[in-house]
């Protein structure tokens, strides 16, 4: 049984670099990520092709506006200050994870010439490599934004709060937070596909459909959770808003 789309390989390339032998596997995770990227890119381009002002807008623009304005509201609720770069990062993570989770219901067959077998499309978020990569984006954004705002010393001070003795626990908390972010998403999506595969043996017609419906729900919730927790980690790295930032934020809210 395939526990991960990494095991479905389409193309293998061996090469040597820096005096070592390397292997490149073109597996289902990479192909699936390309498909999801293509889907998002084409969808966004088609929806934003003729943007309109006023009351009559086309339905795709309406759909995207709903998603973006809802996301902006959610992010600003947690952020409570002006920020240029945090919203695009969180929104892209959310949209990528959402489209990838939901794409699991598309029954796409793939032929692997290496093993000579047919395989079913598994969403890229069902692979541990993808979720670790997405988590690395968040975990690198935490020190990046924290240092940009507070400076190196100000950021590192966070680790010895409230006392120096808490340093190891703060570090463990940081690492386990990132690990749980990756494992949660992987476990949810992977268990969804595996449970559907098991039920296909037990009760082939009815039960898999029900579990796929349930998978749609958990897919949306997990995308929301991933984005929200990533945002919470980034905001924790920023620290409390200063008095100046609070004033700026309130004046911005009044004008808009």
């Amino acid at each position: 049984m395939n526990l991960s789309p990494d095991q479905i390989i389409f193309w293998i390339k061996h090469f040597s670099l820096f005096g070592r032998e390397w292997t490149f596997n073109l597996n289902m995770t990479i192909v699936g990520t390309w498909l999801v990227m293509l889907l998002i890119f084409i969808g966004a381009r088609l929806a934003t092709k003729n943007l309109k002002d006023g009351l009559k807008i086309n339905r795709w623009q309406n759909f995207l506006e709903t998603i973006v304005s809802w996301l902006k509201g959610e992010v600003e609720n947690v952020l409570q200050r002006k920020s240029k770069f945090i919203f695009p990062i969180i929104a892209s993570l959310f949209i990528f994870v959402l489209v990838s989770n939901l794409s699991g219901i598309i029954p796409l067959p793939f032929y692997s010439p290496i093993t000579g077998e047919w395989a079913v499309y598994i969403p890229p978020t069902g692979s541990f490599s993808t979720t670790i990569a997405l988590t690395l984006v968040v975990m690198l954004a935490v020190p990046a934004f924290g240092i940009a705002r507070n400076g190196v010393i100000g950021y590192l001070k966070r680790y010895i709060e409230p006392q120096l003795i808490m340093l190891p626990f703060n570090i463990i908390g940081e690492v386990s937070g990132g690990a749980s972010l990756a494992i949660r998403l992987y476990g949810n999506v992977m268990s969804g596909t595996v449970i559907v595969a098991i039920l296909l043996i037990l009760a082939p017609i009815f039960m898999p459909v029900v579990m796929q419906l349930f998978g749609l729900l958990t897919g949306v919730i997990q995308a929301y959770i991933f984005a929200t927790l990533g945002l919470v980690y980034i905001v924790a790295g920023l620290g409390d808003p200063s008095l100046k930032e609070k004033k700026e934020w309130e004046s911005l809210k009044e004008t808009s």
């Binding site: 749980s180 494992i183 476990g187």
Partner: peptide, 17 residues
């Protein structure tokens, strides 16, 4: 509640994994 539920559920997901 959704966020905290997902955090609680992650222990169950670890066990499943």
């Amino acid at each position: 509640m959704f966020v905290s539920m997902a955090m609680i559920e992650s222990t169950a997901i670890y066990a499943l994994l």
